[in-house]
C-alpha cells in the first residue's frame, strides 16, 4: 500500500493505482472525457488535470495517467488547475458546441460560453476511446489515428471500408460526442 495526500487528506492506495483511480475510490470528483475504467488511460482530453504540489513531478498533470507514489501531494482544485481547465473546456466547447456531454461539463464547472473561435469544427474530439475499445475490448484494431495536428483523425486503414471491422458498434456506443454513425453497407 502507498500513502499519499490529496486535497489535504491522507489516502492509502494499492501500488500501481493512478491519481484518478484513487480519487474516484474515495469520492473526490475530477472531470474526464477520454477516460473509461475498462480501457487503458490515454490523457488526451486534459480535463482531469490536477496539480502535483510535492513528492513528484511538480506541475499540472493528467490524473488518469499519473501513478500515485509514496508521499505524493496532489491538489485537484487549485487556481492553476481551474484556469487551465477553464481554457480546456472553452476549447472543447469551441470545437463541439452541440455535444450534450461537453455542455454538461461546462455547466458543472461554470463555463457558460467560449471565447474561442476555431474556424472549423468536427464532432470528433480525438479522445481515442473508440480506438482503444476496438483494440482492447473487441480485440480487432480496425481503426486507428492518422495524421497529426488539426488534420489528425480516426480512420480505418487508408480510409477504406475495413475487412477487420466486425460491425459491433462498440466505437459508436462509447463515443462521448456521438461522432460515429453506424451505416448499412
Amino acid at each position: 500500500m502507498i500513502k499519499f495526500i490529496i486535497n489535504d487528506r491522507e489516502l492509502e492506495v494499492e501500488n500501481g493505482k493512478t491519481i484518478l483511480e484513487a480519487a474516484f475510490a474515495s469520492g473526490i470528483k475530477i472531470p474526464t472525457l477520454c477516460y473509461n475504467k475498462e480501457l487503458s488511460p490515454y490523457g488526451a482530453c486534459r480535463l482531469c488535470l490536477v496539480e502535483i504540489a510535492g513528492g513528484g513531478r511538480i506541475g499540472l498533470h493528467a490524473a488518469c495517467l499519473y501513478k500515485v507514489t509514496e508521499g505524493l501531494i496532489v491538489k485537484t482544485d487549485t487556481e492553476r488547475v481551474k484556469k487551465a481547465r477553464k481554457i480546456v473546456i472553452e476549447l472543447l466547447l469551441a470545437g463541439n458546441p452541440d455535444s450534450e456531454k461537453i455542455k454538461l461539463i461546462a455547466e458543472e464547472y461554470g463555463v457558460n460560453k467560449t471565447r474561442i473561435n476555431l474556424g472549423t469544427r468536427t464532432d470528433c474530439i480525438l479522445c481515442g476511446l473508440c480506438v482503444r475499445v476496438c483494440a482492447e475490448v473487441v480485440g480487432m484494431s480496425a481503426i486507428s489515428f492518422a495524421g497529426r495536428g488539426t488534420r489528425k483523425k480516426v480512420q480505418t486503414p487508408f480510409d477504406k471500408i475495413s475487412d477487420t471491422c466486425i460491425g459491433c458498434g462498440a466505437c459508436a456506443y462509447i463515443c462521448p460526442t456521438k461522432a460515429i454513425k453506424i451505416e448499412q453497407v
Binding site: 490515454y42 490523457g43 488526451a44 482530453c45 486534459r46 487551465a84 481554457i87 480546456v88 476549447l91 472543447l92 469551441a94 470545437g95 474561442i116 476555431l118 474530439i125 480525438l126 481515442g128 489515428f145 495524421g147 497529426r148 495536428g149 488539426t150 488534420r151 489528425k152
Partner: peptide, 10 residues
Amino acid sequence: SCGKCTSCRD
C-alpha cells in the same frame, strides 16, 4: 502538434 492534447492541438 501530434494532436493528442486538446490544449495543444486546438
